[in-house]
Amino acid sequence: MNFSPLTLSLQTAGIATLIVFLTAVPLARLISRKLFPGKSIVESLVLLPMVLPPTVVGFLLLYLFGNNGPIGKLLIEWFGIQIVFSWLGAVIAAIAVSFPLMYQSASASFANYDPQIEQAALTMGASKWKVFFTISFPLAWPGLLAGLVLTFARALGEFGATLMLAGYIPGQTDTIPLAIYFAVESGNMEAARLWVFIILALGFSSILWLNWWSKKNILRFQSEK
């Protein structure tokens, strides 16, 4: 039995989640409380991958990151990195489909506490960075963590966009969802069952853990307002 789909999936989803977390959270904090012209257009664009069929996301990514695409071409010329048919393609596909989930959770978390709490910290002489790390981030953390778990689960389960951008190359781009599809395709039901079981176990335990954790923590700091 070849276990590369498991390690590849965890690696892909892990890196994608990290990148999504580090980009979606600051973006959400920046945008969520600001009013500017075109805000709803920016937010719609950010959330768009959530409602698009993964094949459409895959198609667009293929256009952007393909060897002749506007970004793909530059990456090859400048760094010699090819995205199509590589595990990086799987990471990018996972980022694209899971970004909206993290963004939405983060937006909701930052809107969930009284903005005066941050203003109070500012009047006490704290820099914007200090306010972010000591006030905004800890207060939003329960929601951010929920977003993190959803993001990871979504990244782990990505199939359509991954197949279109990264293809199915055993040992390189065969994440678990792809492995399941091609196992069934080739009549290898035993392998398919195993991967299905692993995905079910991962999904179930992460949701179970998250529910347990939020029950324990979400009420802890809640401000009475």
């Binding site: 005066q116 709490i117 203003q119 109070a120 009047t123 800890p138 207060l139 700091f221 809640q222 401000s223």
Partner: peptide, 18 residues
């Protein structure tokens, strides 16, 4: 704001809940 040396007590206190 940070340099104004203003002490501000908000209506709902805005204490840091954590």
């Amino acid at each position: 704001i940070q340099k104004r040396q203003v002490g501000y007590v908000f209506q709902d206190y805005a204490l840091f809940p954590h």
